[in-house]
Design a protein around this nucleic acid. Structure first.
Lengths: 181, 181
DNA sequence: TTCGGCATGTAACTCGTTACATGATTTT
DNA sequence: AAAATCATGTAACGAGTTACATGCCGAA
């Protein structure tokens, strides 16, 4: 029992902000939520069907061009209630996420120090690049980032979190490098 | 194609350190690796069978007490090679892990500020507790923590990483709280 | 006219969790 | 004597990825 279907709430949250098609939702995952959630269209379409059956969303069919059909989904009042319930419910923190690189570092004593150094250096480069990408995105918020309640707040605050997370990762890799005598 | 079976390498890494039964491996996940990997016995036992079929591990059956059988697995030379190959292989960084709490914060503009504050405060308490737990574990390494190559290095270095990660999470939640006007 | 993007779906498979199932051993 | 822990397995199901499958639209 008690499976949680988080994808359900991720989709409800997205269509709550603005009505969207399955395709739009997939794009939103890749462009906005990717730093903490993602889903492929193959998972999204069946979930949309389910949410529609449950009365949490509805759709109208729109035509792009002459023939191409788009199903544009909107949240219902029931969907909105369900979403708010989920967001505001206090939950015990999740188990730590799996991390392949940490697993490799955990077993690193099997390697010679040069191989280990290469492993760390390559990871460091990639993490620094990601950090540059995230900091670049942050620029658009300028001097006065949105506060709670403002438009763009969600985007801003999770980006802030992504940067802090990535900085911690970079700092850790540097400590790993220092630990090689 | 190209599925990776990380559990395979996690288990190889564990039995490489020391021969172990399925039960022992499950305990090791919960006690040592839980900050970056975990697996239940229901996943471990079938994987052990598979690894044995592939010739990467072998086992002898031992008896605890009068009757109770334990299958104690050891890594083979082939298994060792396979493990080292995997550890030293440079990989592109993984997609960001999913995080339910970040998802909730992303949609937090739907809440009133008191509910949001409660959400953040509860999360902060839990994260701080986790940090205390991790720092407590760190104490046993004392003034001179192991360097690369030393016994206990893996345990130490991933614990260092877990602390940095958790500190970043705490810092982020504090920023979230500050962003409420 | 070709290529990249728009658009929607299903099938097959791996990964991972919860529950089912059983029984021995040790500790309180 | 009961409870906690040791010990091994399977079944059922949800979550998530890759591949299969199809076709339209706009721009270069």
């Amino acid at each position: 029992m008690s499976f949680i279907r988080i994808l359900k709430y991720a989709i409800l949250g997205i269509v709550n902000k603005e009505p969207a098609s399955g395709y739009d939702i997939a794009k939103t995952f890749n462009e906005s939520l990717v730093q903490f959630w993602n889903a492929k269209h193959s998972q999204i379409y069946p979930e949309l069907k389910k949410l529609n059956d449950e009365g949490l969303i509805t759709y109208e069919t729109c035509i792009s061009g002459q023939v191409l059909e788009r199903k544009v989904y909107s949240i219902t009042e029931e969907g909105k209630r369900s979403l708010i319930d989920w967001i505001s419910k206090n939950e015990v923190i999740e188990p730590t996420p799996k991390d392949r690189f940490r697993l490799r570092v955990f077993f690193s004593n099997m390697l010679d120090s040069d191989t280990y150094k290469d492993l760390l250096s390559y990871q460091l480069i990639q993490r620094k690049e990601k950090l540059i990408f995230l900091n670049d995105r942050m620029k658009k918020f300028g001097e006065n980032p949105p506060s709670f309640g403002d438009k763009g707040y969600g985007d801003y605050i999770v980006l802030e979190g992504a940067i802090l997370r990535e900085e911690a990762y970079v700092e850790w890799i540097k400590k790993c490098l220092e630990s090689i005598k």
